[in-house]
């Protein structure tokens, strides 16, 4: 356990983080252990975001330096998600290429201990279905910024149901124009106004304190 690394990750101190990762590698610390320290730092980032000490500007930086550190570590990282609360699959629905909202939510969910599968933008229904079959998530998130994407969300959720997968997942929607009326229209379980709403809904669902 490197408190220095945890703090560097939490404080977004890139230079300390890089030198500490290199030092731990030299000492022969297992890659998985280093990653777990980083994840612990990310949990603090998530907490600070929740408490409005951090904003999107800090979330983006945290994701950036986490990626940088993971690349430095290399090696076998399998099992890094073993301690996660559960799996969250998310994408921006087809017909819409906006990614900021989706990226906020995936980062915040990652910071809060969820294993996140990010499908990207302009995601066809078939990719959601494939991801649900493959990753068996507890929660699926569908994002959009365009009201023209509402019908795509509706079709996607209907297709997930037709594929016999709807009962096993909760589906959340979000994005600029979405509200409860949208959630009702597309057949989602809930609409999330903020990324924090998504975290709280998912934690409640999985009975995580």
């Amino acid at each position: 356990m490197s408190q220095t690394l945890i703090n560097a990750m939490a404080d977004l101190d890139e230079s300390v983080l890089v030198s500490e990762v290199n030092a731990l590698k030299t000492q022969g610390v297992a890659p998985l252990e280093i990653i777990q320290n980083l994840q612990e730092g990310m949990n603090i980032v998530g907490k600070r975001y929740e408490e409005k000490e951090y904003y999107l500007s800090e979330l983006i930086m945290s994701a950036e330096i986490f990626k940088e550190a993971a690349a430095l570590i290399g090696g076998d990282l399998s099992g890094a998600n073993a301690a996660s609360h559960g799996t969250f699959v998310m994408g921006t629905i087809y017909g819409d290429i906006h990614d900021i909202g989706k990226n906020i939510v995936t980062t915040v969910m990652g910071c809060n201990g969820f294993n996140v599968v990010d499908l990207g933008v302009d995601v066809p229904t078939a990719d959601y279905i494939k991801a649900i079959q493959e990753h068996k998530p507890q929660v699926v998130g569908i994002s959009c910024l365009l009201t023209t994407a509402f019908d795509g969300m509706k079709e996607c959720i209907e297709s997930i149901k037709a594929a016999g997968l709807r009962d096993n997942v909760k589906i959340l929607i979000g994005g600029g124009p979405c509200d409860q009326t949208t959630a009702d229209y597309v057949g989602a379980d809930a609409y999330c106004k903020t990324a924090q709403d998504c975290v709280e809904y998912a934690k409640k669902l999985m009975d995580i304190k």
Binding site: T147, F150, G176, P177, C178, D179, T181, T182, Y185
Partner: peptide, 9 residues
């Protein structure tokens, strides 16, 4: 007036 209301309301 929100976009969603103009589209779905």
């Amino acid at each position: 007036v929100p976009a969603g209301m103009l589209a779905l309301g």
